[in-house]
């Protein structure tokens, strides 16, 4: 088994780990990563000692353990969710609402509406409702989670602002506010993400 294949395998395993532990609390994630890293090291040392084929053994151990990894993640997710605060529940609900309602409206309905296609600009009940939905379902959850998950929060605010821009392109003042909001979200995201990585 070539070194290159082993390296590729480890990278694939890291990718798999990154996927099934996504959005877990950082502590749980890093402890699991450390334990698995230690396991891989011990396995490689054992294989070297026995003259075994580390690459193949490691691959089958990772692949056969995938369903259990997912089951572990689901159990941990549920246990974690029971302890989540009301705020997190609110954010999750708002986000689901935003993704299910605001994005389809912004992407499918607005581009086809008369207003965007050159009709007379006016603030209709539909636009007001859409604004409310976008703010509640995308911008607000983004602001609420930006401290904990800067990239996800920043992206939500950005998407929310883009949805509102699609709606209010004709209103110069609104565009100004939205551009400032987008820039503030970008600055917050970069700043918080750099603090988190330290």
């Amino acid at each position: 088994m070539s070194e290159f294949f082993t390296l590729l395998l480890r990278e694939a395993e890291s990718g798999w780990f990154w996927m099934y532990t996504a959005a877990l609390p950082e502590e749980a994630r890093s402890l699991r990563a450390e334990e698995l890293h230690s396991d891989a090291w011990e396995h490689e040392a054992d294989a070297r000692q026995r003259g075994g084929r580390f690459g193949l053994e490691f691959a089958y151990r990772v692949i056969l353990g995938m369903p259990a990894d997912v089951a572990w993640r689901v159990q941990l997710g549920r246990r974690g969710f029971e302890r989540r605060s009301g705020l997190e529940l609110l954010v999750a609900s708002l986000l689901a609402f935003g993704l299910l309602v605001a994005l389809p409206i912004s992407g499918l309905v607005l581009p086809r509406s008369d207003m965007v296609l050159g009709g007379a600009p006016h603030i209709s009940a539909f636009l007001l409702a859409h604004t409310l939905i976008v703010i509640l379902g995308l911008v607000l959850p983004g602001v609420l989670v930006i401290d904990r998950w800067p990239v996800a929060g920043g992206l939500l605010v950005l998407i929310g602002c883009l949805c509102l821009m699609a709606e209010f392109w004709w209103l110069r003042e609104a565009m100004g506010v939205l551009l400032v909001g987008t820039a503030a979200a970008a600055v917050c995201t970069v700043r918080l993400e750099s603090l988190r990585r330290r």
């Binding site: 230690s38 396991d39 151990r61 995938m66």
Partner: peptide, 30 residues
């Protein structure tokens, strides 16, 4: 004992035919 030691011991004593897969092993330990 650590996780891999348990897995290798189970293989050596014949309790498991091969090394236990990582997901199964650490989920069971958890």
């Amino acid at each position: 004992f650590h996780g891999f030691l348990a897995a290798s011991r189970m293989r050596d004593t014949g309790e498991a035919r091969m090394l236990t897969s990582r997901g199964t092993l650490y989920k069971a330990l958890d």
